[in-house]
Design a protein around this nucleic acid. Structure first.
Lengths: 244, 244
DNA sequence: CGCCTTGCTTGATTTGTGTCAAGGTGAAGT
DNA sequence: ACTTCACCTTGACACAAATCAAGCAAGGCG
């Protein structure tokens, strides 16, 4: 086990833990792997591949065979669907600890693409499937994850169906902050590795509207824009806004 | 077992099967109950209550304790969330065979309300939970249902985030038709028990826009409006429209 | 029968967000 | 140091859908 310095992007010099095996994985308790006992991990280890993937790389593509499921252990992944004419809707952002493949369908239902440099654990779907069949507590854990996924999808449906631009941006910032808090410490500083275009495609808006809205929130002193993210100034008002 | 004439709404004189027990239930193979063997059904029967519920009745309310899960065996249910100021977003419509309570969370994440007269099987959540713990194949079935739910939520997210009014209406009609086809025979006639307001709140539009859009589709000869529904005239063009 | 109510449609106008266009900033490369 | 490029911001204008308003059709009921 070795700690190596790795430049995820310029300016980011935080040490990144190389993960040679699941037992030593720091993200274990955050992820689906939390369902495994120590000795189960050993057999899990046999089918898992740990991979570092550079920014903007497609992890898997909508419509292709889902030969693998993934667990994200570092970085940010955008999950999206494309319409025939190129319109893009981002379904969600996956971060450290998130599992990709909850639905267990044989074809991918969306495309997954690395936003920045990511690390993932890749598991052959069939191997994962047979583990599920053997270990009910793993399936239970997976179903628990699916339940949360359904819940956040419904939040997103309400946001897209009934909220205006300002409410959408506020809700995005706060929900993304909550997600980060599961993994990092809760802070008024919210790093945003994804582009404005990504945020726009997540919120069903255009990049210009997102930019204008963030500018307005800054003008109104609810937040300030900082390099690679934002800082919240008025959490209460932002929360009020996001709830509609 | 008795067949009774029941007036669900004026003009609807189709015979409605009273369901005294699960073994005799015609909807069994459509629903979560398909996961049960014959003798398991007997124990299931002991905890299930069959209920007929009139139109516009609240089945359960967002935020309240989820003491029961439900399986719909007749009629249409609207599932929605409300924003504090009264804006409503319909998450989905549940029909014959649909299960409510996939997420298994302890509080309801949305309100469920009967659109027309419905029949449901009501199961205490804790009893259902313990059945899940005992019978992995039931959990597997439930997870399968959750997977489909995630998929349709994502369809809805794409619709709300990136489609215009015409595409939304076309997509709604076709996806609702597909859902009905699982249960009735696939037809160009689509009964619409829900109101225009319901459709609007499902599609993130206003009632006026839904009405105008349906009128336009009729003017363009893609469909005709008939009492209590629509009839598709040009399935190909409607499909093309809905795909964006 | 006529009156009221509910649900739906249609028209006129407004508005929030999209579109088009220009310009700014900072990092990377020559 | 200059150029290029990607990304973001801002402004002017356009447009799709919302809002406001009126009227229609069908059912319920006194």
């Amino acid at each position: 086990m070795s700690i190596v310095q790795k430049q995820n992007k310029p300016g980011d010099t935080s040490p990144v833990l190389e993960v040679p095996n699941c037992a030593a994985c720091r993200q274990r308790h955050l992820s689906i792997c939390a369902a495994f006992g120590e000795h189960e991990l050993v057999s899990f280890d046999r089918v898992v591949q740990h991979k570092t993937i550079p920014a903007k790389t497609v992890l898997f593509e909508q419509g292709t065979m889902a030969d693998f499921v993934f667990s994200v252990s570092e970085g940010t992944v955008r999950l999206f669907r494309l319409l025939p004419d190129g319109r893009r809707q981002i379904i969600g952002f996956a971060i450290k600890g998130d599992f990709l493949g909850t639905a267990m369908s044989d074809r991918h239902e969306y495309t997954a693409e690395a936003v920045d440099t990511i690390k993932v654990c890749r598991i052959p779907r069939l191997a994962f499937q047979s583990m599920l069949d053997e270990k009910p507590h793993l399936l239970k854990k997976l179903h628990e994850i699916a339940g949360r996924e359904i819940h956040t999808s419904q939040d997103q449906i309400v946001l897209l169906g009934r909220k205006n631009a300002e409410e959408r941006v506020a809700a995005f910032l706060l929900s993304y902050r909550e997600r980060l808090a599961r993994v990092f410490t809760l802070s008024v500083h919210i790093p945003l590795p994804m582009s404005r275009q990504d945020i726009a495609d997540y919120l069903g808006l255009t990049i210009e509207t997102v930019s204008r809205t963030i500018s307005k929130l800054a003008r109104d002193k609810l937040l300030v824009v900082v390099p690679d993210g934002i800082r919240i100034l008025d959490l209460d008002r932002l929360t009020q806004l996001s709830d509609g």
